[in-house]
């Protein structure tokens, strides 16, 4: 078990190295010049700027320095925010993105399980049809449309109420978090509802439920102890991959709701060719996802005896 963990960890580190290398060379292949600005500068000033960012050295040496710095967890200084270290930027903004992501996934899982169970109970009746129609909408409408509509409806609701129920944009308090995370979780919630519904129905037809009923167990107990518990398993399994989808899907929600998250920052950095921030963010996200997968795998191994870890 321990050996397995160590092995996966080493694999993870190699993967992160690969991501870092791919990012470095992709970034240096990008045309354009991060040091350029609105006003043209003298060649002497330019040389000084290049020296400040180490861009005057040969590529191989830059790569080596980059790897060395990264190994010690230093991503350098931002090109646009010249006083800020990329580490600080990532730390400050990732906190926000992570909050948004966690909430969204919790909303999605919670809603998905609840609606899925309800639709299964009301199969082919009105609640099922209505919820499944909404689910289809949730799966097929692009996220940015939801985000824009979400913000618009918040404005209208506040207007109608005469006070601010939910803020239309910004970040910091509980009220700020609710609408964006629901919008972000919507697609996943729809997907999970479908999954939960079919999983519930499948379990309902399985032998052990039949046995339980034959034994004369109370309906609520069957539902709670057997059906729900087993139906949730496949939902939990897909939560892992959903985390990745949600962290990156956060871009749109962060842009629309003016949330100071890492996704929005990354898009801005790309538009500004801010090399260090782009590289730092990509490597950080890559490493984050890689290690999340490892952690999830290891936890599965611990929790579910059927999963064998080699």
């Amino acid at each position: 078990m321990f050996l397995y963990g160590v092995k996966r960890l080493i694999q993870g580190i190699v993967t992160v190295w690969f991501i870092a290398t791919a990012t470095f060379f992709a970034m240096h292949g990008v045309p354009g010049d991060p040091l350029m600005n609105d006003k043209a500068v003298q060649p002497e000033i330019r040389a000084n700027l290049e020296a400040r960012y180490g861009l005057d050295k040969p590529l191989a040496q830059q790569y080596w320095i980059y790897l060395k710095n990264m190994a010690s967890g230093d991503f350098g200084i931002s090109f646009t925010q010249q006083n800020r270290e990329v580490n600080d930027i990532i730390r400050e903004h990732f906190k926000v993105s992570a909050t948004l992501g966690i909430l969204a996934i919790v909303f999605a899982a919670f809603g998905g399980i609840l609606w899925g169970a309800l639709t299964a109970l009301y199969r082919n009746r009105m609640p099922d049809i209505v919820i499944m129609f909404l689910v289809i909408l949730g799966i097929s409408v692009p996220g940015f449309v939801f985000a824009a509509l979400g913000q618009l409806s918040v404005v209208e609701i506040n207007d109608w109420l005469g006070f601010t129920l939910f803020p239309v944009a910004g970040w910091g308090t509980v009220q700020h978090m609710i609408v964006p995370s629901m919008v972000l979780g919507l697609g996943t919630m729809a997907f999970l509802t479908r999954l939960m519904r079919s999983s519930m129905l499948e379990i309902a037809n399985s032998d052990f439920i039949r046995t339980a009923r034959a034994k004369g167990l109370p309906v609520t107990r069957i539902l709670r102890k057997h059906q729900l518990r087993n139906a949730i398993l496949p939902v939990i399994t897909v939560l892992g991959p959903s985390i990745a989808a949600i962290t990156t899907g956060g871009f749109v929600v962060e842009l629309v709701f003016a949330i100071p998250g890492l996704g929005r920052y990354f898009v801005q950095a790309v538009q500004q060719s801010d090399y260090t921030v782009i590289m730092g963010t990509t490597v950080f996200y890559g490493a984050f996802l890689v290690f999340m997968v490892i952690v999830v795998d290891v936890i599965y191994g611990l929790v579910d005896p059927r999963v064998r870890l080699e």
Binding site: Y122, R123, N124, R125, I209, R210, R213, V219, L223
Partner: peptide, 12 residues
């Protein structure tokens, strides 16, 4: 309809 194996009732 609505049975889903457990029988829908208000308790579920």
């Amino acid at each position: 309809e609505g049975a889903a194996g457990t029988g829908l009732d208000i308790r579920s």
